[in-house]
C-alpha cells in the first residue's frame, strides 16, 4: 500500500491521539484506549514477523552451508526448544522455558556484558590521555567521580563523595537536560512530519 490511504490513516490516527491527549471526554478516552490496544496487538505481530524472518534466514544459511552455519543450527535449535517449551508448558518457574532462561540465557548475557569491564580498563590505559585541556578536564572529572563513587574515595578525602555528587547533580544535569530537550524536540518534529505525510520512509520509500 503506497497510495494516499496509508497517509490518511497515519494523519487521522496521529491527529486523534494528539487531540485525545488534551481531551478528558470518556468517549475519546475509550477510543484512545482502543487505539493503544491495536498498537500493542500490531506490535505483537511484528515480533512474530521478526522471529519468522530470523528463522528463514538461518534456515537458508544451514541449507547452503554458508560460513559459520553451525551457529545457525544452534540458533534454530534454541529457538525451537524455547518456543516449544513456552507454547506447550508455559513460562512459569519450573518450566523448561524458565529453566533455560534462568540457567542458560541469563548467565550468557551477563557474561557477555561483564566483558566490558576488561575492555574499558584496556581502553582507559591506551586511550585516556591528557593530550589537550578538554581531555585533561574530562580525565580529572572522571577520576573524581570514580573515586567519589567508592568508599575508598571518602577515606582518601572526606569531601570527595560530595564533590562527585555535585558534579553529577549540577554540571552533568545541565548537559543531560540539554540532550533530553534536544532529543524531545527532534522526536516531536519527526512525529509531526509522519502525521503530516512529509516523512514516508515507514512506507518503504523516502
Amino acid at each position: 500500500m503506497r497510495g494516499p490511504l496509508p497517509l490518511a490513516v497515519a494523519f487521522l490516527a496521529g491527529m486523534f491521539m494528539i487531540v485525545s491527549f488534551f481531551s478528558p471526554h470518556p468517549a475519546v478516552e475509550k477510543a484512545s484506549g482502543d487505539f493503544l490496544n491495536w498498537v500493542s496487538i500490531v506490535s505483537g505481530f511484528s515480533i512474530l514477523l521478526g522471529v519468522v524472518s530470523i528463522a528463514q534466514n538461518n534456515l537458508a544459511k544451514v541449507k547452503r552451508r554458508q560460513k559459520e552455519w553451525p551457529y545457525a543450527v544452534v540458533l534454530l535449535v534454541a529457538l525451537a526448544v524455547m518456543l516449544a517449551g513456552g507454547v506447550l508448558e508455559g513460562t512459569d518457574s519450573g518450566t523448561v522455558y524458565d529453566a533455560l532462561f534462568q540457567n542458560v540465557q541469563a548467565p550468557m548475557m551477563t557474561t557477555m556484558f561483564s566483558m566490558l569491564a576488561f575492555f574499558i580498563a584496556s581502553a582507559a590505559y591506551r586511550a585516556f590521555r591528557a593530550r589537550t585541556l578538554q581531555a585533561t578536564l574530562l580525565l580529572g572529572t572522571a577520576v573524581i567521580v570514580m573515586l567519589g563513587r567508592i568508599p575508598v574515595g571518602q577515606a582518601i578525602y572526606d569531601g570527595l563523595p560530595d564533590l562527585a555528587n555535585w558534579i553529577m547533580a549540577v554540571p552533568n544535569t545541565a548537559v543531560q537536560r540539554g540532550i533530553i530537550i534536544g532529543a524531545a524536540l527532534g522526536g516531536a518534529a519527526t512525529a509531526l512530519r509522519i502525521v503530516l505525510g512529509l516523512e514516508r520512509t515507514y512506507m518503504g520509500r523516502g
Binding site: Y125, F128, I150
Partner: peptide, 20 residues
Amino acid sequence: AQSLIHLLIIAFIVLGNVGF
C-alpha cells in the same frame, strides 16, 4: 570488587599517561 576495579582503572589511566 567495584572499589578495587575503580582504583585499578585510575591506576591504569595514570600509568598510561606517565608512559605517554
